[in-house]
Design a protein around this nucleic acid. Sequence first.
DNA 1: ATCACACTAGACTGTCCAGTCTAGTTATTC
DNA 2: GAATAACTAGACTGGACAGTCTAGTGTGAT
Lengths: 207, 207
Amino acid sequence: MSTAAKGRPKSEEKKEAMLSAAADLFLENGYDGVSMDLVADRAGVSKQTVYSHFGNKDALFASCVTCKMEEYGLGPALLDHDLPAREGLSRIGQHFNALLLSPEAVRMKRLMCAHAESNPKLSELFYQAGPAMMKEIFADYLDRQVARGQLQIEDTALAARHFLYMIQGDAHMMALLNISEAPSAEETDRYVESCVELFMTVYGTKG
Amino acid sequence: MSTAAKGRPKSEEKKEAMLSAAADLFLENGYDGVSMDLVADRAGVSKQTVYSHFGNKDALFASCVTCKMEEYGLGPALLDHDLPAREGLSRIGQHFNALLLSPEAVRMKRLMCAHAESNPKLSELFYQAGPAMMKEIFADYLDRQVARGQLQIEDTALAARHFLYMIQGDAHMMALLNISEAPSAEETDRYVESCVELFMTVYGTKG
DNA sequence: ATCACACTAGACTGTCCAGTCTAGTTATTC
DNA sequence: GAATAACTAGACTGGACAGTCTAGTGTGAT
């Protein structure tokens, strides 16, 4: 039963170097823009080693995505349930926005869109670990605020979508499309605040 | 001055066949997934003719995008300025949503995202002719409704963003990522209506 | 009729790249 | 120290494909 393990074991260190190099390259240059030779080179490893660990390019790509998704999973500690709703929403909105606009997240989304047709499993993975997860976490937050009497919402899942999708707005679209004169951080902040305002008008408790 | 035009002129018909074939192929298979041989074949034309009309693959791609963008430009006739605001918004929202979810629009956006880094000119073209145009048209619509006393809005450009980006929501994200169990048409309709409702709560004139 | 150019069919070049193979080296276990 | 398997360096195969070239055939303007 005990794992036999005769001979030299595969190096976990090298595996990580390969994953990290490959992820960087894929995010920067896209799937087609990266050759296995380049990955091997960048990871300081021979090509054969890449194949011995991952089998083929597709599998390497999939491993990179899975790995990145696990990294992202650790992020939802930024909810402060005890703040007044308006401040809490504002903080969440700003953080969420910053996450969406980070170069890595933007590149990841581009990559997932590009291969959604040819590789729907990966884009589904991305959707579940990203947008769907965020939606769920935020809906829970809203539930708590309703319980605290800070908000008045019938369907918190629906309200969560209203808020999260509204907040993405122009800034996200422009980042995704790499538009040159993107709105400044201040403009984006102000937009987020306007969304919070709007949300509170609709879902805030009166008085 | 008059265009000299000696010899046989280039066939406009063939040019259109090439553009149409290439656009279909690019939208279906992405830039890297299409070879010039395939385009020539599909257009019923020899490869040399493709090169003689477009010079190289990049230029062909650019022509396809420009062409598609011109097609899309003709769409904003669906605004009925005389309807009550609630019905008008509902209609616009539904149309806008249907447009965003059409397979062609989804593929175009994927393509533009994928090449936003390597070809920002094209994605900018897309942004201007697509989202930016829509935003402008819709803000104008809101201005009119404010003038008619149907809505009460300080900043119509801001309100337009609120509405249009909120409305995209999950359905658009899932279409882009090719998620298998997309929401049904009824669910999406209901979501759009909920956005209209929310918008009217904030920006509708009382009583 | 003739010039000029578009067009065709297909061969060809050069490059890139996924994936394999080889021969030798190094680390790990028993 | 012998067996085993990971690893390296680099050559190699085979296929795809952008772009060019050639030689010949339409086709429209003057």
